[in-house]
């Protein structure tokens, strides 16, 4: 019998109201220990507020959560690393001191913090910036410094709120590597994003939030499994009568047709096309992307409501 995975974080029925508006409306989350967990949602969906409640920065109006075995998340704060969406560092601090300070806030002694900061900065390719003040760093570099500060104390649970925003592709790759390295160290990572490519590559599990509610929870494969496979067929001979053989939803795209793979599978359809002499010049069967799933789950209405 399979045992339920140990959970690093569990939340049930979280509700947060700002005035009359229910910004978060009964969200449940269960994050297995040692996993990378994504919280996806369009702008204004309630991701940041949810993360703040999970960390105990905000108190939920309803519901409860357990973080690393603590019903009061702040009691586990020394074992948590957090990169807020609103990046913030003291501009007058040097990069090494800023990282050590963030570690000291979480219980790491300053000396160790400074040593680790130097090593981490070197490893991240920012060795030249160790003694630079934050105000002299580029935005991307400062963001990387803050990220290093949020993991310098080697936390068991890491929360990253939109960690990729503002990073160039090179630094995005560095960040992905860092997230994997932290997971390999044994940490659990929870991050929010609205960029599906990162979630698709990184997440073991994810939840999709829209309008303050969780619309999906599961693995990336589960999510993609909610939509049927799609096929792109290019006939060898496009005689008359081809359209009648294709599924009703087939649409012309270039020299071929795109359609949802029928429930019976692709084989009977291909047999009929070959028998009718249309032949096969090209055929690709594609799994739906997380982006497709996201758009379908969130819905065009929610996306349209999203502020620019």
């Amino acid at each position: 019998m399979l045992q339920a995975p140990e959970l690093a974080l569990q939340a049930h029925g979280l509700v947060k109201r700002f005035g009359d508006r229910r910004v978060v409306d009964g969200i449940d989350i269960a994050v297995p220990a040692g996993s990378i967990y994504g919280v996806l949602g369009p702008n204004g969906a309630g991701k940041t507020t949810t993360l703040r409640m999970l960390l105990g920065i905000l108190e939920p109006d309803e519901g409860h959560r357990t973080l690393l075995g603590h019903a009061r998340p702040r009691e586990a704060s020394d074992r948590v690393g957090y990169l807020p969406e609103e990046r913030g560092l003291y501009p007058g601090m040097k990069a090494r001191e800023a990282i050590a300070f963030m570690g000291a806030l979480r219980g790491l002694d300053w000396r160790t913090g400074r040593k680790r900061a130097e090593a981490m900065l070197e490893e991240a390719g920012l060795g030249h910036a160790i003694d630079e003040k934050i105000r002299k760093l580029s935005k991307g570099m400062a963001q990387l410094v803050q990220l290093l500060g949020s993991v310098v104390h080697e936390p068991d649970f890491i929360v990253l709120d939109e960690p990729f925003s503002g990073l160039d592709p090179v630094n995005q790759n560095r960040l992905e590597a860092l997230i994997h390295a932290q997971r390999d160290r044994g940490a659990t990572i929870l991050f929010s994003t609205h960029v599906m490519a990162h979630a698709e590559r990184l997440c073991d599990r994810l939840t999709i939030i829209a309008r303050g509610r969780a619309r999906f929870e599961g693995t990336v494969a589960d999510a993609r499994g909610t939509l049927p496979y799609r096929a792109h067929y290019v006939p060898h001979h496009a005689h008359e009568g081809l359209a009648a053989l294709l599924p009703a939803d087939a649409v012309r795209e270039g020299d071929g047709f795109r359609f949802v793979v029928p429930d019976e599978g692709i084989e009977p359809l291909l047999s009929r096309l070959l028998a009718a002499g249309h032949g096969i010049s090209g055929l690709s069967i594609e799994r739906p992307s997380l982006h497709d799933v996201f758009v379908r789950i969130v819905g065009p209405d929610a996306l349209e409501e999203t502020p620019a």
Partner: peptide, 14 residues
């Protein structure tokens, strides 16, 4: 802390 947005880092940690 308000102007440089450090407050959330502090509020989350301590």
């Amino acid at each position: 802390e308000r102007s440089n947005k450090v407050i959330e880092v502090l509020a989350a940690a301590v």
